[in-house]
């Protein structure tokens, strides 16, 4: 997800009271591995599922590998990075 998110970033995720929107970075359950969470950008929302893509298609493992993700598996939206301080800000 670089450059939007880097390894080790500390991020605040807000619960979603509405369906995710295209372009947002969301926290979702990895459909392949129980208990594993991923942060990816929403590329498409339709019919109870969404397509999640990484920002670096040549390196990302995303919906192209694990398929569409159920909206019920989308837990929240990444809203703010609070560390590292130099890169702190809204996402």
């Amino acid at each position: 997800m670089e450059p939007a998110l880097c390894d080790g970033d500390w991020v605040i995720v807000a619960p979603l009271a509405r369906p995710p929107r295209v372009g947002e970075i969301v926290l979702a359950r990895d459909p392949r591995v129980p208990g594993r969470l991923v942060l990816k950008r929403v590329a498409r929302v339709k019919g109870g599922v969404c397509t999640l893509l990484g920002d670096r298609p040549e390196e990302s493992t995303d919906s192209r590998t694990f398929g569409p993700v159920a909206l019920s598996a989308v837990l929240g939206r990444a809203v703010f990075r609070y560390a590292p301080l130099l890169r702190a800000g809204l996402l």
């Binding site: 997800m1 390894d7 500390w10 969470l37 991923v38 942060l39 590998t65």
Partner: peptide, 13 residues
């Protein structure tokens, strides 16, 4: 205190 309690993966496999 500030350190996140949950880890999410933003990169590949």
């Amino acid at each position: 205190l500030l350190k996140p309690k949950t880890i999410a993966y933003a990169h590949c496999d």
